[in-house]
């Protein structure tokens, strides 16, 4: 069975005919947005994290039809209008928070939501760790990722 879904993806309105069984992850990747990765397909690793109405979700567990009428953000849409990196993307680069990079798109989206929610608030490294508990990374040991988020929160928004 197929159904029509209308949603915005990275600010652009899309109307798509999707298999009702398809996950949001499958829909996005079929649209060429392959930045979002599948690490487990069952909501355990967080590699497929995207933002739906600014809330992080595991897109592998989120049906594409549920996105109807909603705003989806993926790692590809985070670049600034001038093509530069977003503050979170730049902080990941600067802090050395990227190794194999497979968990990175999902983590960038979790961090983006975290930074938007905590802008102007005091947060501890422990808060940052708990706020990223749904994202696994096997390369970094998380230290540099926490550093990156800390840097974002310490930097005043432009």
């Amino acid at each position: 069975m197929r159904q029509t879904v209308t949603c915005t993806v990275n600010g652009k309105t899309l109307t798509l005919d999707v298999d009702v069984r398809a996950s949001l992850l499958e829909m996005l990747r079929a649209e060429g947005l392959t930045g979002t990765k599948q690490g487990c397909g069952v909501g355990e690793c967080g590699a497929c994290t995207v933002l739906v109405d600014d809330m992080p979700v595991d897109s592998c567990l989120y049906l594409s039809v549920w996105a109807d009428g909603r705003a989806v953000r993926t790692v590809e849409g985070e670049l600034r209008p001038d093509g530069g990196l977003s503050p979170v993307q730049q902080a990941y680069v600067d802090a050395g928070a990227v190794q194999c990079g497979f968990c990175t798109p999902g983590l960038i989206m979790s961090s983006t939501a975290f930074v938007e929610r905590h802008a102007g608030k005091r947060v501890s490294r422990e808060d940052i760790r708990r706020g990223h508990a749904g994202n696994l990374c096997r390369c970094t040991g998380y230290g540099a990722i926490v550093d990156a988020v800390e840097r974002c929160l310490k930097t005043k928004p432009e």
Binding site: L33, T34, Y92, V93, G96, G101, P105, I108
Partner: peptide, 19 residues
């Protein structure tokens, strides 16, 4: 410490893996 050559590709989702 130099910026990793693949850092930008990986934070933008442009780095292409097998799948």
């Amino acid at each position: 410490t130099q910026q990793r050559l693949d850092a930008v590709a990986k934070v933008t989702g442009r780095a292409r893996y097998t799948d």
